[in-house]
C-alpha cells in the first residue's frame, strides 16, 4: 500500500475551454489518482498556491490560448518560490513542436499534444514515481498503527 498520488489539473490563463482538462481529470481519476480540479482562468499564483495547500505530487497544466510560453514557465517559477521543487509538472493542449524544448528547459517535464491517449499520460506519471499503474488502485488505504 503506497501513498496515494495527488494530481492538480489546472487551466492557466484566459481561454474558456476546459473540455480537454476535464477529460484528463476523469481519466486520471479512473486510473486511481486523486485529482483536484480548480476550474478556468487561474493565475500562476493561484495554481501554485492550490498545489501547495493540496500537497500534490503532480501539476498538469492545460492551455489552448497560445500564451504557454509566458504562463507555463511562470507556474514553475511560482511553484519553486513556494519550495515545491519535487512536484512533477506536465502540460497539454495546443502547443507547437518548436516551443517544447524551451518549455522543457523551463521545468515542464513533458508536453502532451492533442490526440495523446490518456494511457500514455498515466504511464508517464507512473514511471516518474517508479510504480505500476495497477498498484494505483490499492494505494492510499489508511494504514493502521
Amino acid at each position: 500500500m503506497g501513498r496515494k498520488i495527488r494530481v492538480l489539473i489546472a487551466k492557466p490563463g484566459l481561454d474558456g475551454h476546459d473540455r480537454g482538462a476535464k477529460v484528463i481529470a476523469r481519466a486520471l481519476r479512473d486510473a486511481g489518482f486523486e485529482v483536484i480540479y480548480t476550474g478556468l482562468r487561474q493565475t500562476p499564483e493561484m495554481i501554485a498556491e492550490a498545489a501547495l495547500q493540496e500537497d500534490v505530487d503532480v501539476v498538469g497544466l492545460s492551455i489552448l490560448s497560445g500564451a504557454h510560453m509566458t504562463l507555463l514557465p511562470r507556474v514553475v517559477e511560482e511553484l519553486r518560490k513556494r519550495g515545491l521543487d519535487d512536484v512533477l509538472v506536465i502540460a497539454g493542449g495546443i502547443i507547437p513542436e518548436e516551443d517544447i524544448p524551451a518549455l522543457k528547459a523551463a521545468g515542464i517535464r513533458e508536453v502532451f499534444g492533442p490526440g495523446t491517449s490518456t494511457e500514455t499520460i498515466v504511464q508517464f506519471i507512473c514511471e516518474h514515481f517508479g510504480i505500476r499503474p495497477e498498484d494505483l488502485k490499492a494505494a492510499g488505504e489508511p494504514a493502521l498503527p
Partner: peptide
C-alpha cells in the same frame, strides 16, 4: 478504482 475527482475548489476562488 480508488481514484477521486475533487472539484470543490472551483467555487471557492
Amino acid at each position: 478504482t480508488g481514484g477521486a475527482l475533487l472539484g470543490d475548489r472551483i467555487r471557492m476562488q
